[in-house]
Design a protein around this nucleic acid. Structure first.
Lengths: 351, 351
DNA sequence: ATGAAAGCGCTAACAA
DNA sequence: TTGTTAGCGCTTTCAT
């Protein structure tokens, strides 16, 4: 019995009684092969348990048919955006691409020492970069240095990026509330302190879209929240206070679901009925799955960002030297059950 | 100006004035190279922006240095276990491996039609398979058919698998409660119906470990819950009822965090003080991050499973024909704040 | 529609 | 320690 080594294209060719090239053509589909021949080839391949060598194909063609997704992590509790990855895979499937993932702690990339393998070697055709926090300078250098085709996800850049249209979504949500007669609409954000500029564009854009729309309607924006209240309890009691105050809002836009849930709690404590006395909305990855009524949400289109990201990267790989226009992806509006017309005047403060 | 094509090892060799093989050795580190030579090589490489071709290396050596992680998804809302992926990456980093991810909806694998690229082609050295639900038969066939080195994660098999030691954890947790004087300890599980056998081994093992330990201590196991109560509200009110009943427990073991939270709610409604009147524990991926006191938890060691999984797969790749013993990974005990001695007798029912 | 032949970028003997 | 040489498994002209 000869040493059992994996079957190669050559073996298949021999078994099928055809030339190597024919087998290659049958598997790549890049040139016509007679139906009968193809069947014989596939049969032989199956019998031999033949699998095409991706590396050999890659070497010969110069294409790995692999995209890499770079993820930032904060220590071990990294954020792995499920819907984004699903979207990416979804976008890749029809093109027979596969996905490599590199999840690196921020400091690993900032440090000069370590260069991640996927950048250091030629192992994929292009990069999808999903850094929700600040992007390490060193990485940008590497990408330029090596001429890597790369698309930025969830990040606003001058070119080659795909991101949710936070600004547009904020405008549209605020308008919707105004149209329902709300005038006291508060924007709640416990992530970013009021003084600092948020490090993620969504912090800026959601707020800016809201403020701009309020002002255009002749209303005064009200911003609530502070990044100092780290702990859930503090946030909740702060919201309770707010909802019990005389100048409480009739509608709330939460930066995330957390803020919306805090508002729900505050409303409960202040004996306000949602949505009769208080309309609650927020931005979130999906409809909130926790208990209680579904919150009216502008849904961050992670899945779609993945799909569009792949499409964009495919273009970039074809023409690496052409800078692609930034591509905002519209958010989806999910009605939920926490939306109502503004209550009649002068009533709300005296329940 | 000549057409700009990526630098190859040959270019580097020429620029550094050495032979190809020397450059190869410098980069692979598999054979000694004079320090001075090596420096010249790296300089030349840097100047040329040289990156090693992973495909060429793979073809030559027969190793891709890539492991693939197969994930099941339920439609778009797939479970992507963050800590597991982190652990896998962590385990791979020192060996200069990289990770490919394939997240497939269950039906895609069950169907005869589609064979995922990572199985169909030679693109990685081995497979880490993380199917939390039933494993499609077709996949097992493919793996055998192609002789793929594979390790099952979070799944009990006859061999080649790595999984959290649910049984041991259940035993140890139950013992702990018994030692604190608890006799009425309930096991709560709203995932699995009481009659059916759970599809995931953790459903069996956590329950079995609990029951076995109770019986050995001469206590009667009490199982609560039913998979029919799909909706959160129903679960909560069911727990409330349980906590108000005369034969309420003094300690609870939740199958997941959801059950523990339901117990918290039930306790609140029944005016029981946690942990004075009721000890609450559960199994979970990490310490519960929601509001309220941290729940005493047996932490599922996802991160560690990733690390051990990689280690095991490395062994499997070296010796594909040796069946490796199943490797349970111990769970970690997190005290939390919901644990106390059993209340004195005859008191608890009359608050 | 198929065959013949050259070579992609790298590594592993072997020789020096 | 370094150079020489052959070839990994596949694709792609160019013929036929």
């Amino acid at each position: 019995m000869p040493a059992k080594t994996a079957a190669t294209l050559k073996d298949v060719a021999r078994a099928a009684g055809v030339n190597d090239a024919t087998v290659s053509r049958a598997f790549s589909g890049k040139a016509p092969v007679a139906v009968a021949t193809r069947e014989r080839v596939f049969e032989a391949a199956k019998a031999l348990g033949y699998r095409r060598s991706g590396s050999a194909v890659a070497m010969r063609t110069g294409r790995t048919n692999c995209f890499a997704l770079l993820l930032s992590t904060h220590g071990d509790r990294s954020v792995i955006p499920r819907l984004l990855i699903n979207g990416v895979q979804h976008g890749m499937r029809p093109h027979d691409l596969h996905l490599a993932v590199e999840a690196l702690p921020d400091h690993q990339l900032t440090s000069e020492g370590h260069v991640p393998k996927l950048l250091r070697e030629v192992a994929c055709d292009g990069l999808l970069i999903n850094y929700n926090a600040r992007i390490p300078r060193r990485m940008i250098e590497l990408i330029r240095e090596f001429h890597l085709p790369a698309i930025w996800l969830n990040s606003k850049q001058d070119s080659d990026c795909v991101y949710p249209d936070d600004h547009g979504a904020a405008v549209s949500l605020t308008q919707r509330l105004i149209e329902l007669g709300h005038t006291r609409i508060a924007f709640v954000d416990y992530t970013h302190s009021k003084s600092e500029t948020p490090w993620h564009y969504s912090g800026i854009d959601r707020r800016a879209g809201y403020e701009q729309t309020m002002k255009q309607a002749g209303l005064s924006p009200v911003r609530v929240g502070s990044s100092e209240l780290r702990d859930q309890d503090a946030i909740w009691s702060s919201m309770t206070e707010f909802m019990q105050s005389d100048d409480r809002p009739t509608a709330v836009i939460g930066y995330r679901a957390i803020e919306a849930r805090a508002a729900m709690h505050g409303a409960l404590m202040a004996r306000l009925v949602v949505p009769r006395d208080l309309t609650i909305t927020c931005f979130a990855d999906g409809i909130d799955q926790d208990v209680g009524p579904h919150i009216t949400t502008m849904v961050v289109p992670d899945h779609q960002v993945g799909i569009v990201g792949v499409q964009t990267l495919r273009e970039k790989v074809e023409q690496p030297d052409i800078a692609l226009e930034p591509r905002p992806v519209p958010m989806r509006y999910e009605p939920g059950k926490t939306l109502a017309h503004a209550p009649k005047r002068n009533c709300p403060t005296k329940p």
